[in-house]
Amino acid sequence: MSATAVLLLLLPLVSAQTYHWGSCPTPKVQPGFDLEKYLGRWYEIWKLPASFERGKCIEANYALRKDGTIQVLNSQFYKDKTRKVEGTAIVPDARDAARLGVSFSYFTPYSPYWVLSTDYTSVAVVYSCTDILRIFHVEYAWILGRSRFLPRETVVYAQDLLVEEGIDLTRMTATDQTGCKDD
């Protein structure tokens, strides 16, 4: 099968994603990342499009399990109901703890979940990228906050950080966090 045929078969799968030709960039991650400080609830403030995130009030809650893996509980309000999905994150190399892997199914490999920057108390910048046959890559980026709303200057700082790392934010959009119910 030719590369063009493979690409044509895969394009519908990535239509709601952000994809670019070539391999993934390799942005710098948070030095000295402290997983314990990162755990807890984060609200999605801005993101690159993701087919699995179509709702509003999107948030993620991270908790350490007894086996050392991280429980990832994502939720969003979509089509008049709260929808939750549970996944698992791992730290493949403790020396590079800001480069996590996350999976939401036993049948899929861990996808990159790289914490580029965080102050642990207000904002985090996260990036994920997967190469598809070295022909193109699918990428995600999130600006997360410990509260549902961040000051504009904090968002600009996070966006500038992503741009400096070579990540195209042309398709980045704000996540609707209005009218949300907190547990």
Rank of each mutant, 00 (worst) to 15 (best):
residue 152 R to E: 14
residue 159 Q to Y: 01
residue 117 S to I: 05
residue 174 A to V: 08
residue 88 T to D: 06
residue 75 S to Y: 04
residue 56 K to T: 09
residue 5 A to C: 14
residue 129 C to N: 03
residue 127 Y to F: 07
residue 109 P to L: 12
residue 31 P to V: 08
residue 145 G to W: 02
residue 22 G to R: 13
residue 131 D to Y: 03
residue 73 L to D: 09
residue 159 Q to H: 03
residue 14 V to T: 05
residue 71 Q to S: 10
residue 144 L to D: 03
residue 18 T to D: 06
residue 58 I to T: 08
residue 5 A to M: 14
residue 86 E to V: 14
residue 123 V to P: 00
residue 98 A to F: 00
residue 182 D to V: 12
residue 1 M to N: 11
residue 179 G to K: 02
residue 159 Q to D: 00
residue 23 S to N: 14
residue 76 Q to M: 10
residue 149 F to M: 11
residue 152 R to C: 08
residue 167 I to D: 00
residue 102 V to E: 02
residue 130 T to A: 15
residue 97 A to T: 04
residue 141 A to K: 01
residue 55 G to R: 02
residue 53 E to G: 00
residue 173 T to G: 09
residue 62 Y to D: 02
residue 13 L to G: 06
residue 93 D to W: 06
residue 130 T to M: 10
residue 13 L to F: 11
residue 97 A to C: 04
residue 164 E to H: 14
residue 36 E to K: 15
residue 8 L to I: 12
residue 52 F to W: 12
residue 101 G to I: 01
residue 160 D to I: 01
residue 68 G to E: 06
residue 2 S to M: 08
residue 10 L to P: 00
residue 42 W to M: 05
residue 129 C to G: 00
residue 10 L to R: 03
residue 31 P to Q: 11
residue 6 V to Y: 12
residue 97 A to N: 05
residue 106 Y to M: 14
residue 2 S to H: 08
residue 21 W to L: 15
residue 134 R to L: 15
residue 116 L to N: 00
residue 183 D to R: 12
residue 92 P to A: 06
residue 66 K to Y: 13
residue 52 F to S: 08
residue 112 P to Q: 08
residue 24 C to W: 00
residue 116 L to F: 00
residue 79 K to S: 11
residue 40 G to T: 04
residue 30 Q to R: 06
residue 103 S to P: 01
residue 76 Q to Y: 06
residue 106 Y to V: 12
residue 26 T to S: 14
residue 170 T to I: 09
residue 140 Y to K: 13
residue 38 Y to L: 01
residue 112 P to S: 09
residue 79 K to Y: 14
residue 134 R to W: 15
residue 64 L to D: 07
residue 117 S to C: 08
residue 74 N to L: 05
residue 100 L to E: 05
residue 96 D to W: 11
residue 33 F to L: 15
residue 150 L to P: 00
residue 133 L to P: 01
